[in-house]
């Protein structure tokens, strides 16, 4: 109490979590996948840094985006990468995407009673060469989807994606049908629009945008390889190809 007396015994406990803001997003194409995240890290109203990556390359054909409590996120990525390295040593090959997805679910559920406060989105190329997105909740529930947004601006971005990717509430012209998968340039435009919109209306989103694109082996990167400001990070030119696109977002 202000007068120094104790009306009640006080106990305040340590809170081992915080929220570091930001948003992530992934969209699967027929033979490619796009995984993106902004690069702002914040706590409360303070921007801690304008560049803290949330999207990580796991293998030649798998990318993981993590969002929520940054310390848990970084530790989780570290541990996933470690498990994938052990797998490589044991089996002399990279773990397939669907196996990584199950691994992530197991690792998250192992912490069921002290969870990683992290929303994960895994994107990449499946063994059959199709683009795939897996999304997880903090304790490991997961499913394969064509697109998913998560994080601070999930509620702003996901309905936009429903409309633009799944063509929800849109009727195709008579005798025509909506495409099941969009071409890469269309997907990239939607991703960039999503993040500029989220930046405009959400204070925890902004500063920079990092877009990973994984293209299945032998498939066309649809002009991406010649696009301005694109960095290729493929292990081999004849395997699956991986690119990073970096864009500025508003810093206010």
């Amino acid at each position: 109490m202000p007068d120094g007396s104790f009306a009640h015994s006080q106990q305040r406990s340590f809170n081992p979590y915080t929220d570091n803001g930001g948003t992530i997003l992934a969209i699967a194409g027929a033979d490619f996948t796009v995984i993106a995240g902004d690069t702002r890290q914040s706590e409360g109203y303070s921007i801690q840094t304008r560049y803290a990556p949330k999207v990580f390359r796991l293998t030649d054909r798998a990318v993981l985006a993590v969002n929520g409590f940054a310390a848990d996120g970084n530790m989780f990525v570290k541990k996933v990468k470690q498990r994938l390295e052990w797998y490589r040593h044991a089996h002399a090959k990279d773990m397939p995407l669907r196996a990584i997805a199950r691994l992530i679910q197991t690792m998250l559920y192992a912490q069921r009673f002290f969870p990683y406060y992290v929303y994960n989105i895994l994107g990449g190329i499946e063994e059959d060469g199709t683009g795939a997105v897996y999304s997880f909740d903090p304790v490991g529930s997961y499913e394969r989807e064509a697109c998913r947004a998560a994080g601070a601006a999930q509620s702003l971005v996901q309905p936009f994606l429903d409309n633009q990717i799944y063509f929800k509430n849109q009727t195709a012209a008579p005798g025509q049908s909506h495409p099941t998968h969009l071409p890469l340039p269309d997907v990239l435009a939607i991703v960039i629009d999503s993040f500029t919109s989220a930046t405009e209306r959400h204070i925890e989103v902004g500063d920079g945008l990092e877009i990973y694109v994984v293209v299945a082996k032998g498939r066309s990167p649809q002009g991406l390889d010649t696009m301005r400001g694109v960095q290729e990070m493929s292990a081999r030119p004849d395997g699956d190809r991986m690119f990073v696109i970096r864009r500025d977002l508003k810093k206010d």
Partner: peptide
């Protein structure tokens, strides 16, 4: 409202 903001900002 938050969903409306997101979609409207995009469309």
């Amino acid at each position: 409202s938050s969903k409306l903001f997101g979609v409207a900002e995009g469309l």
